[in-house]
Amino acid sequence: MTPLLRAIVKKGGPFIGLILVIAIFSAPSETRGYFLTYHNFKIILTQSVIVTIGSLGMTLIIVSGAIDLSVGSVVALTGVSSALLLQHGWGAAATTLAAVALGGLIGLVNGTAVAGLRMPSFIITLGMLGIARGTAKWLADNQTVSYDTSPINQWMTTANPSGRALPAGVWVAIVLALATSLFLKKTVFGRHTFALGSNEAAARLCGVPTVRLQIMVFALAGCFFGLSGLFQLSRLRLGDPTVAVGLELDIIAAVIIGGASLSGGAGTVLGSVIGALIMAVLRNGSQQMGWPNYFQEIIIGVVIIAAVFLDRFRRGGKA
């Protein structure tokens, strides 16, 4: 195969998967009339925002050779915290900044523990999964946190009267995806992140500040997770400390379906976004087919395994 053809197959792999799932759900009589409408795509895009923004941060972390299991809890914690701030009369912009900052702060803690204490990220973020979830419940006093209405509530709505316009959350996800993609490909920080994940010892030998870089990757990813938390709040319109349990697994699945390697050094933003869309289409399509929840879970499980298997097959047997 020529390098060009290989690049197309490699980059196109997840995209072909997306086309395939869309085609599958367009055919049956139950969904035919509605599935391919603009309105439904708007719903799918909106439903995928939280996982997509999370997958941007997770792509950074996985490319750097680490993992973050605390995302679901961080989303709950930033959601609850933001709801409390709104309750205390903060504005939408200030609350958004606070949510991003809180996510970044938790990422900073994760990264410092991973790089500074030389602990596996799996362990550190597993610990943070408990800490953040517990803190969320503590802050919320084990209840949901409600607040007077806020512009934030409009950022994820698909029921706007004009019908055409995409909600703000979708635009934010698109802009951030483009920015992150450029950032990973074109900046020194981005290339250093690939080097770190590909071979930490070699990166260090080349003068890459590996400890500082790993901390910054976690902190930056944390900002994305904080933003995911804010959009989760926007969707629910109240702070729920028990929301988003297991969200990190959906996000990791999106990144892996998108072609990233769990051993680090490989992955693309485009792939991860398509991975997130594949999952959103599967959920949406299954609902319209009237399939029960458990059936959706089984399908998504199969898709994850199939995606990684196909990816491996494409690369000629190497994981």
Partner: peptide, 13 residues
């Protein structure tokens, strides 16, 4: 480095 694969190069880059 004497260890081309472990330390010298980032093989998948």
């Amino acid at each position: 480095s004497e260890n081309r694969k472990e330390e010298g190069l980032m093989l998948n880059l």
